[in-house]
Structure formats: C-alpha cells, structure tokens
C-alpha cells in the first residue's frame, strides 16, 4: 500500500503532460513522470519517494512509436521491454531488453529503465554505442540531441523534461554484436557485469554496466581494445585498467570479483568480435 496521497494525470499529448508538470509544481506538489511504474510504485510503497503528482506518459502516441523511417529505427520511450525485445530493428537492444522477468517486462518501459532511479540502466548500453539521437520534451519545447551529449552516468534532463524517443541509424543497429551478462545467482538479479559491444568498421565499441556505479562507454578503453599491436590478453588487461574507475563493492559481489569478471568479459568481447587478428 502506498501511504501518501497523490494526484494522477493521464495526458493525451506532450503539451498536456508538460502543462500537468508545471501545474503540479505551481501547486507545490512534487511531480514525477510515470511510465511503467515499476520503480515508482515500489519506491513509494517503501517511502523512499513521495511523489505529489504522477503524470502518466505511456498513452502519449509519440512515446509509443516503434518504426523505421528515413534510415533510422525509432523507439518510443513508453514501449515496454517485451515490445522492445520482440522487435528485430536493433538485435543488440532486443537482447539487452531481456532483463528482469517476463511479467515485469510487460510494464517496465525503455524510458523508465534509462531515466529511472536504479543505477544499472542496461538498455541504454546499445544506444550509447551508436549515434543515437534523443528526442526530449520540456518546458522550453521539444529538442533532439545526441544521446552521448546528455548521458553521463545518467540521463541529464533539464527540470520538467522527459524522454520521448530514441532514434538509431539502421546501419549501426545492424552491426555484429556481443553481449555478456553476469549475475551472482538468479538470472533476474541486478548485474555484476553487463557488457554490450558492437563490431564497427572502426573497431570494437563497448559499453558496460554493473561493474561501476553507472553505465559507461570510454574512448580511452576502446582505443586500447582496438590496439592490435598488443596481444589480446594484454589488451583486455590494459583496457580494464583504462576505465580508471572504482568497481562497486557490495553484497552481490566484491570489487575484486567484479574486476575479474570485467577482465574475462573484455577477453571474450575481443575473441567474439574478431578483434584477435
């Protein structure tokens, strides 16, 4: 049971959603955008958050788009992970959407996973490997920006802004890919390590989650991964060090264990994506 009271809005348009957000703020209510609700309902029940107003985005048509147009695959932020997982447009993304359990995936949305409160945000990894454009809506209007410009540890949205769509060049969505996910015990658990990688013409691109405090893609790491003057094992070792970040250390796994998984994962990535030659 959620103990506190709140106001619920179900807008039909982006403009109505932005208006509801501004209106709630003017009333002194703390507004949250709602999509699948998997985090908001459970966090509210536990008293970790106390939204004063929820603005439900999942019936706004632009947030439900799933299409190919003008050389891009377009994913609405309100698509559920099962809908994304069943879509063939971006095979690595379909695989990355296979987190949590099947029933939760009927509610959990792409936008919620990327812009939510949990630190793993595994579905952002495939997008970080491509020239993805993020369509955002906010009080200042709508804008489309490179995802790489607004994702650093988390999605850097302006106050009142929300994610509407992600647009991926089809040429990149179809690249050979590799994904490795390591958990402590159950497949449903949060990851100790999730690697997503693409084999592009310019070499291996790699992003990961679970090892550090937030998802990361690093040009320095990729430079080492693609340095064929080094033996593959040495490349993996040097790439792991090149992150320059402290591994998470918690009840799911020690920092040392995560670092070991990272090293093995990088070795696998080089092997699977043909980076050994």
């Amino acid at each position: 049971m959620i103990a506190h009271n709140l106001v619920y809005h179900r807008p039909e348009t982006i403009g109505e959603a932005l208006g509801a957000f501004a209106g709630a703020e003017a009333e002194g209510l703390k507004p949250y955008y709602l999509a699948g609700g998997t985090e908001i309902t459970t966090f509210s029940r536990r008293g970790l958050i106390t939204p004063g107003a929820l603005i439900d985005l999942k019936t706004i048509p632009e947030c439900r788009v799933l299409t190919r147009r003008e050389g891009s695959a377009v994913f609405g932020a309100g698509l559920t992970l099962n809908e994304v997982g069943e879509c063939p447009f971006f095979p690595l993304l379909s695989e990355a959407a296979g987190i949590v359990d099947h029933t939760v995936r009927n509610r959990l949305t792409l936008g919620g996973n990327i812009a939510g409160m949990l630190p793993y945000r595994e579905t952002v990894l495939p997008f970080l490997l491509t020239d993805t454009a993020a369509r955002l809506a906010g009080p200042g209007g709508e804008r489309e920006v490179p995802l790489a410009d607004i994702f650093s540890r988390r999605l850097k949205l302006k106050p009142g802004e929300f994610l509407v769509q992600l647009r991926v060049p089809e040429a990149e969505a179809g690249l050979p890919w590799f994904r490795r996910r390591r958990v402590k015990q159950s497949r449903l658990d949060y990851p100790l390590l999730t690697i997503c990688a693409l084999a592009a013409r310019d070499g291996i691109r790699l992003a990961l989650s679970g090892v550090f405090d937030s998802p990361v893609r690093s040009p320095e790491v990729e430079a080492v991964l693609n340095d064929r003057s080094l033996e593959p094992a040495r490349r993996a070792e040097t790439a792991a060090a090149a992150f320059g970040l402290r591994a998470r250390d918690d009840q799911r796994g020690s920092a040392q264990y995560r670092e070991m998984l990272l090293l093995r994962g990088l070795e696998e990535t080089i092997r699977e994506l043909g980076g050994e030659g």
């Binding site: 049971m1 619920y8 609700g37 309902t41 459970t42 029940r45 029933t103 939760v104 009927n106």
Partner: peptide, 27 residues
C-alpha cells in the same frame, strides 16, 4: 512481497500478465 518479485498478485491486463502490486488502479 508487494515489490514485484513474487508474482503472487499476477492478473491479466488486456490479456497480458502484470503484477498488480506495481499497477495503480487508476492506470
């Protein structure tokens, strides 16, 4: 669990299984 983990509260919404502890009635 009322935390989306156990599935004991599963119902169908338009034929799809959901955990009703994670859905607001108004939704």
């Amino acid at each position: 669990c009322e935390n989306g983990d156990c599935g004991a509260c599963t119902v169908l919404l338009d034929g799809k299984p959901v955990k009703s502890c994670m859905v607001l009635a108004v939704e």
